[in-house]
Design a protein around this nucleic acid. Structure first.
Length: 269
DNA sequence: CGCCAGGCGGGGG
DNA sequence: CCCCCGCCTGGC
């Protein structure tokens, strides 16, 4: 299947902090997504993926959205966004699995990206289903039911530190319906945030990442240290509440603005 | 060695 | 309600 290159860059999309199971390969990226191993390679005039499920790819990469129009709209909002949008012009916000996104961002707290990716891979290798594609072995992300019965010590091998108990709390609450991930789809962002924050290890930042990257709640604005740096140094906002500022400045496009600003901040600051 | 990394929970003021 | 501290682990 071919994917147009317009407003799409693999590096921008996979290195902007929204996903952890994609890795650079020769001529592209490969990742385990939705229980399958997918590769995307770059050709002169388009991208090519070995995944034949066009519906899935279209939804996952948000291919139905007019990013050119979206970026133009963002660039009219202030003086910082044009340079930020230019730096990560090929970013697309992926539509990821809610459960995997929940666990991934619990692991991300007070952590760095290489180690986050390592912990997730070990979690999948030890508790996920082993599968094979074209002779390549890979591991699906473990279902909540595969984790909810475990004791904290049994997660020791993934070396997630104090986050192990949070992962198990998430697995239990999802498995027993305390945290109904399916229902959040139909909730407002604020309702979804309240629901997600019942889970240990989920605060505002982690909840907003899940709402944005798994549920397409594009009005949220995950606020981490990089975004704080951008807001302080580029927007010169003092002790103004970042969430309030973002809502007023970016409105329904806050999530997109966050991605461009985050990517810009990481390359610049 | 100390410090930091894409926060959070728990306690105290 | 806000602020402050400690935290697994690994890399520097």
């Amino acid at each position: 299947m071919q994917i147009p290159k317009r407003d799409f860059c693999l590096e921008h999309t996979f290195e902007c902090g929204q996903c952890f199971r994609w890795n650079q390969t020769q001529g592209g990226y490969s990742g385990v997504v939705g229980g399958r191993l997918i590769s995307v390679t770059e050709q002169p005039d388009c991208f090519v993926t070995d995944c034949g499920d066009e519906q899935f790819i279209t939804r996952y990469f948000d291919l139905g959205r007019d990013y050119a129009a979206l970026k133009q709209q963002l660039c009219g909002l202030d003086e910082v966004l044009p340079e930020a949008v230019a730096s990560g012009c090929g970013i697309r916000i992926l539509r990821q699995d809610p459960w995997e996104t929940l666990v991934s961002f619990i692991i991300s707290a007070n952590n760095n990206i290489p180690r986050i990716k390592g912990i997730i891979e070990r979690l999948c290798m030890q508790f996920g289903e082993a599968r094979e594609q074209d002779g390549v072995r890979y591991y699906a992300f473990p279902a909540p039911e595969a984790l909810c019965g475990l004791r904290t010590e049994q997660l020791g091998g993934i070396r997630s530190g104090y986050r192990a108990q949070y992962i198990l709390d998430a697995a239990r609450k999802v498995a027993d319906g305390t945290a109904p991930l399916g229902a959040i789809e139909r909730m407002t962002a604020e309702e979804g945030r309240v629901c997600l924050k019942q889970i240990l290890g989920v605060g505002d930042k982690v909840a907003d990442c899940i709402l944005l990257f798994a549920y397409g709640k594009f009005e949220v604005f995950p606020c981490d240290v990089w975004i704080r740096r951008v807001l302080e140094r580029l927007y010169r906002i003092g002790n103004c509440d970042p969430a309030l500022f973002a809502q007023q400045r970016f409105g329904a496009l806050a999530g997109f603005a966050q991605q461009y600003l985050f990517y810009y901040g990481r390359t610049l600051l």
